[in-house]
């Protein structure tokens, strides 16, 4: 009995953690390139949930029944539209503030976050929305009464986040775009001198970050089935925490941070108290940062005198 409960909590934690990780990627990439906390990221994720549900409903009305086709086309459409959101937000609210104080884009990000929430509420209504169940059933381990299970949807989440991370890692490590990203991350001015179009790179980072959040948004929508215009807030804070926990600016750090946070929450909620799980998560974050001031995988910025 206890073994299965533990196994079940691990499954719960890892699923939740990989979603946190996917959203955290957006924070970490944007931070890496322009040293800015993009507070509107959680709401971009919220928008992607709506886009996913709308796309699914439109596909249904055209009589598309194949589930894998539906999932993949919803993913593609949502990533595209959410990516455009990322691009537009950067262009409208952050680019004019480049070269200003570091905190100015932070405030316009808060403005954008309010705008997105309110826009979706006005356009779609405040009520909770849902999507029908696409994938049901689960892999079960154990007897009829005592078992641990992983649903097929949870498997899809794990596979999809793994694939998304693999694509991202390839993009950053082996392509010209990735090299330019990393160069911009190191030093924006020198990269510009060397012929990198840094404005374009920053735009691409926003697009990639938003598209990754969209993958998270689609998976969450299909897995939990319901959402409203306010889901971006809690998810945004959690994913930001995960990004910092792993070391903000580090791509593997975001994933690790997400997993640590997800597992911590699941295990603490399961074995101690649900009420205080968030308190514990933040306390753990403070303790980790106390001993590793740059997060788990973050590299300290070496300051030379």
């Amino acid at each position: 009995m206890d073994f299965y409960i533990l196994a079940q909590q691990l499954v719960n934690g890892i699923t939740l953690g990989s979603i946190y990780g996917l959203i955290a990627v957006g924070y970490t990439m944007v931070y890496g390139v322009i040293r800015m906390i993009n507070f509107a990221h959680g709401d971009v994720y919220m928008v992607s949930a709506y886009v996913a549900a709308i796309t699914l409903a439109v596909l249904h009305s055209f009589g598309v029944d194949s589930v894998p086709f539906a999932i993949i086309s919803v993913l593609v459409v949502t990533c595209f539209i959410t990516g455009v959101y990322g691009w537009t937000i950067e262009r409208v609210a952050y680019r004019p503030l480049r070269g200003s104080t570091k905190l100015a884009p932070l405030i316009s990000a808060i403005g954008i976050s309010l705008m997105l929430q309110s826009y979706v509420q006005v356009a779609q209504g405040a009520r909770d929305q849902g999507v029908p169940v696409l994938v049901s059933g689960a892999l079960r381990l154990g007897t009829d009464k005592d078992f641990a299970q992983i649903t097929y949807m949870q498997l899809v989440i794990l596979v999809a986040s793994f694939v998304a991370m693999a694509i991202l890692t390839y993009l950053i490590s082996y392509t010209t775009l990735g090299r330019q990203c990393r160069a911009t991350q190191q030093n924006r001015h020198i990269s510009a001198v060397l012929g990198v179009n840094t404005d374009r790179i920053i735009s691409s980072v926003f697009v990639i970050g938003a598209a990754t959040a969209a993958v998270g948004g689609v998976l969450v929508t299909f897995n939990y089935g319901s959402f409203n215009f306010f889901i971006g807030f809690v998810m945004g804070i959690k994913a930001f925490t995960a990004a910092v926990l792993g070391g903000i600016g580090s791509l593997p750090g975001a994933i690790l941070g997400g997993l640590v946070l997800g597992l911590t929450e699941a295990l603490f909620a399961g074995y101690v108290s649900t009420d205080y799980k968030d308190v514990f998560a933040f306390a753990l974050l403070i303790v980790i940062l106390f001993f590793r001031p740059y997060g788990l995988l973050g590299r300290p910025e070496i300051q030379k005198v």
């Binding site: 409960i5 719960n12 319901s226 959402f227 399961g270 108290s273 649900t274």
Partner: peptide
């Protein structure tokens, strides 16, 4: 006797706890 957090969507850990 447990309290969950408003605004979250994943209550799997709590559900497993109810089960146990």
């Amino acid at each position: 006797y447990e309290g969950l957090t408003r605004g979250e969507r994943d209550f799997n850990a709590l559900v497993t706890k109810i089960k146990s």
